[in-house]
């Protein structure tokens, strides 16, 4: 559940999501659920001319299983905090 919580802290930030079909969508992260399904608002496709299918779509739901990468800004992530949290989760699951 760590990355679920992690993504919840990123809500309302601008992220870029690369899907497994090579489409890249940039938008504001609006919500996330336990499967890491994402909801983005105000999306723009990186190459609209190549894939115009989503041109009149602003608000999109992305299934977590089809996400390849989520690109984040460096300053959005507190790596030390994330490492700590990961360690703590690993400890608690070992018990």
């Amino acid at each position: 559940m760590l990355f679920f919580s992690f993504f919840k802290t990123l809500v309302d930030q601008e992220v870029t999501v690369e899907l497994k079909n090579d489409i890249e969508l940039k938008g504001t992260l609006k919500s996330v659920d336990q499967f890491l399904n994402l909801k983005l608002d105000n999306i723009s496709c990186s190459d609209e001319t190549k894939y115009p299918h989503l041109s009149s779509v602003r608000n999109i739901f992305i299934r977590g299983s089809t996400v390849r990468y989520v690109y984040l800004n460096k300053n959005m992530v507190d790596t030390n905090l994330l490492q700590d949290a990961a360690r703590r989760e690993a400890m608690s699951s070992r018990k």
């Binding site: 899907l19 969508l25 009149s56 779509v57 602003r58 608000n59 999109i60 992305i62 299934r63 089809t66």
Partner: peptide, 11 residues
């Protein structure tokens, strides 16, 4: 569900 990639709301 496992065939879905994304659903966008049409304007």
């Amino acid at each position: 569900g496992n065939q879905i990639v994304c659903c966008g709301l049409l304007d």
